[in-house]
Design a protein around this nucleic acid. Structure first.
Length: 283
DNA sequence: ATAAGGCCCTGACCGC
DNA sequence: TGCGGTCAGGGCCTTA
């Protein structure tokens, strides 16, 4: 599923293919993907507009247009953007197809139809709800500590909350907690500043490495799993220490990786490397 | 204010 | 082979 590293790779791949092009046609095959706007209005406001920039904030793709509008795209679970030649037949899951001024097509594929497209002049309205960008200067251990202090929810759930820190999903939350040696069930209030120091470093290192490795592609299906716009898979799944490894030995200590449900999400951790909440309270 | 649960969706997978 | 049931989960919404 696309989290920050996958979205970042998508932006980097698409930027040279999209900036400078205009939208010359829009085919909306599943209107509910358009957030809060009838298809007619979406089409009217988009046609003729030129893409002047491509960026990312959290898991949002941001396409700045020449008239001040921003096309915000959230891939949610199974969304993928591809640039294709019009001659290539569209897939059954290509729910939005944009004709570009250079003759290519931008296609949005999403089997589960969870993704959202938002065309707006005020992207900050949605973006200001997000916590700090984890790879930016504004994200510090003290900032992380301040955002989770006094909270009873499990740290795993807090990391999935985009208002705590933006961009983490189920995979990288588990991987970061493993690298920091923190038990996913530890309540937010139990984490010390020292814990937040380690967690902060772990989040940054996990995300930066995953970006460099092209993100994570799980499973074999090219339909439901992440692919970059040109079709390449990620490589970071080979480096997962805990995610998807329940029942397998920890690569550090050999203990069996456990899987539990936290905040309605499957959570993977090493019972030996990630000390329990009680242990965290001890110092 | 915070937390928890339901909902949207459909491909993949499992047991019979 | 076919079929029903379950799982996967990001963000938004409702409820407590």
């Amino acid at each position: 599923m696309p989290e920050l590293p996958e979205v970042e790779n998508t932006v980097r791949d698409l930027k040279p293919l999209l900036v400078g092009r205009r939208f010359e046609g829009v085919d909306i095959r599943w209107p509910r993907l358009l957030s809060g706007m009838p298809p007619e209005e979406f089409t009217e406001r988009l046609l003729g507009r030129q893409i002047v920039n491509a960026d990312r904030r959290g898991k949002y793709l941001l396409f700045a247009l020449d008239d001040g509008q921003t096309l915000m795209v959230h891939l949610r679970m199974t969304g993928q953007l591809h640039v294709a030649a019009p001659e290539e037949p569209a897939g059954v899951h290509d729910h939005l197809v944009f004709a570009l001024s250079d003759g290519a097509e931008l296609r949005y594929q999403d089997p589960r139809k969870f993704g959202r497209f938002l065309l707006t002049r005020t992207p900050q309205a949605a973006l200001e709800k997000l916590g700090p960008e984890p790879l930016s200067e504004s994200f510090t251990p003290v900032e992380l500590f301040a955002r989770i202090q006094g909270r009873r929810a499990a740290i795993k759930g807090l990391l999935l909350n985009q208002s705590v820190v933006a961009g983490l999903g189920n995979i990288y939350a588990d991987e970061a907690l493993f690298q920091a040696g923190i038990h996913p069930l530890s309540p937010g209030y139990a984490l010390t500043l020292a814990d937040c120091n380690r967690l902060h470093s772990a989040i940054r290192q996990t995300l930066a490495t995953a970006i460099r490795e092209g993100g994570s592609t799980l499973g074999r299906s090219s339909i439901t799993n992440y692919r970059r716009p040109a079709g390449m898979t990620g490589r970071y799944q080979d480096r997962h220490q805990v995610y998807g490894r329940a029942g397998e030995p920890c690569r550090v200590c050999g203990a069996t990786i456990q899987r539990v449900r936290i905040a309605q999400r499957s959570t993977h951790f090493c019972p030996h490397c990630q000390a329990g909440a009680e242990a965290i309270n001890r110092d």
